[in-house]
Design a binder for these strands. Structure first.
Lengths: 349, 349
DNA sequence: CTGAAAGCGCTTACAG
DNA sequence: CTGAAAGCGCTTACAG
């Protein structure tokens, strides 16, 4: 827990502020009968010594470790798998998991209204031992505010690049993107489309660059009209396929940067009478049960999502206990799982 | 919060136990130097007065409402939708959501070792304001222990019938089962199979009886070999279809008691070259995005899962605030959503 | 093992 | 407004 060893007392604050203990007590408890001048001096001393009133301390359960997991939304198998990993490790380490979701209308409005400092202070007051932030955009100022209050944070696949000193957990996205594309190249495809997630997301960029690296290694030129970033949701897959099919020379294979995107492609293909894999090969990313259970089962780059959840919690607990981290960046291996959505192109020679 | 108005002091406990305050202090703090006899008397007095040590009180954040949501497992769209409903309402009411899952190996072992009383006491010590139990089997003794400690509980679709005085939230399962079956009858099917969830689960029984009611209303005899209960997971759907197809006269339509079961049927049908809906009509239950995104999109009985989550939290908060409940049983409406997995049977006349 | 006494951190009631 | 004094709930150190 590495807290200030000597917990400051009311008397210590009083001494520093040059007032009596009862006066400090009044300020702490929000009484009115204190002169503005005295109040200011006491507040300064309170802040300087980091005093916590019994009521404040009450909200900080000592001994019990509470980690808040923040998702932008809990609407994908990807998110649920990560959560399950966190929960599993939390169960073995007696850690409480508080769950929150930022995309909720009211929640978002509320947190938007809070300054980074106030938000971080809220976490302290609520007794959070640490935080895991998944797929959300956190400002550097916010992450900094947490650090200043000694709340360990780990981010998983953040939507924006985190500051260098924040622990981040992810998968080998570049290698995964490369493996997916190489698989399609090996089958004989050369017109390969890429349907990506949010352009700013680092994990998406890595997948895109893996895709480009594989193409360039085979001297296949990257056709910019084949690359469509947007979101990890299935509607992007449906719209993306529509756009690709309207090209003069549509791709014969698609690498989708998430299984959800791939499922959107699958649905749109069906509506257009395109068979998969006969007319179009399709590779997804994530390797959730969605890939396994889809019809046809999806070739996909599997991420160890549960392991990522566990790794994030492990990193938070390590920081909390003042242990050294092996690395500020934990990167777990992806691997291509070939199922039935990929085959040689029809016009292959 | 309706807590005991006079919070009991160490001195009061000492008086009742006939010992001095320091002795009670030792017992509370787990010191060894107390005779077993004295310890027993003090513990009895502690229990009788409901004394909480400062450390215990510290874990009970006053003002902050913390609700624990307990799932047997977080492995279905059904569970995730309910959770999202809870989270959404929690966000608007400033309630903290602690998440736990009982099916985890370690977690299950741990809670199995705990007596109902100790488990309930843990919840009190951990400062839980209330609990929402989803699809889990809780013993009457456990639910009783919570009630004795004034922790409001709401159960959603419990695996075992809860005691009459426990608030339960569910959907109109009987009506939903009836609607699904009537839809198939109307299309001209008369050989309709039922693939159900756990036999003991009340929601499953209601769906089964709705199915039977619809058949009986049309004077269709219920063929017992057409009714296969088991689990809500997809593997039950795959095995169930296999079993039904091995019958001398297989059904021409199947009502699956969950979308996951239906997806299992879909996969197995595909492996057997059976087209849906041409060769076999299929109705699911739950109406999650899985039904919407499957190929073909699944006709399904939609449950208002998010609303169920919200209703459960609302019921917990009502009890917490000492407000009267409209009903011990909240039952929300289901409705049939017809998509593309149902059609008239081939040999219809 | 037990508890009278001292002490700690904080709050309350009130004199100035 | 301020703080000396009294008091509260609990713990600690130690005599018996």
């Amino acid at each position: 827990m590495t807290v200030r060893p000597e917990k400051p007392t009311l008397a210590a604050v009083a001494l520093r502020a040059g007032v009596s203990a009862p006066t400090v007590s009044k300020v702490v408890n929000g009484r009115e009968d204190v002169s503005p001048d005295t109040r200011a001096r006491v507040l300064a001393a309170l802040e300087a010594l980091g005093y916590q009133s019994p009521v404040q301390r009450r909200t900080t359960a000592p001994g019990q470790t509470v980690v808040e997991v923040v998702f932008d939304a809990l609407n994908s198998a990807y998110a649920v798998e990560i959560l399950n990993g966190v929960l599993e490790y939390a169960g073995t380490t007696d850690v409480e998991v508080v769950l929150s979701v930022t995309s909720q209308v009211t929640g978002a409005a509320l947190s938007a209204a809070l300054s980074p400092e106030r938000r971080a202070q809220r976490m302290v007051d609520a007794g959070r031992s640490g935080m895991i932030v998944v797929t959300s955009a956190f400002s550097a100022a916010q992450l900094h505010a947490f650090r200043r209050r000694k709340i360990p944070v780990a981010v998983i696949d953040p939507l924006n690049p985190p500051p260098a000193d924040v622990v981040s957990v992810g998968a080998t996205n570049w290698a995964g993107g490369k493996a997916a594309t190489e698989h399609l190249l090996q089958l004989g495809h050369s017109r390969i489309g890429f349907l990506g997630g949010p352009e700013a997301a680092e994990c998406n960029q890595a997948r895109l660059h893996g895709y480009m690296a594989a193409l360039m290694a085979k001297d296949v030129t990257v056709d910019p009209s084949y690359v469509l970033s947007g979101s990890f949701r299935s509607d992007h897959g449906a719209r993306g396929l529509k756009a690709l099919l309207s090209l003069a020379e549509p791709p014969t294979a698609i690498f989708a940067a998430s299984d959800s995107i791939a499922l959107g492609v699958l649905g749109e293909a069906r509506r257009n009478g395109l068979r998969i894999p006969e007319d179009l090969s399709l590779v997804g990313f994530d390797g959730t049960y969605q890939a396994e259970e889809s019809i046809p089962p999806l070739t996909s780059v599997a991420q160890p999502l549960q392991e990522m959840g566990r790794a994030a919690l492990r990193a938070v607990l390590r920081q909390l206990h003042g242990e050294a981290l092996d690395s500020q960046r934990v990167e777990l291996a992806t691997h291509l799982v070939v199922r039935e959505s990929t085959a040689a192109p029809r016009e292959a020679h």
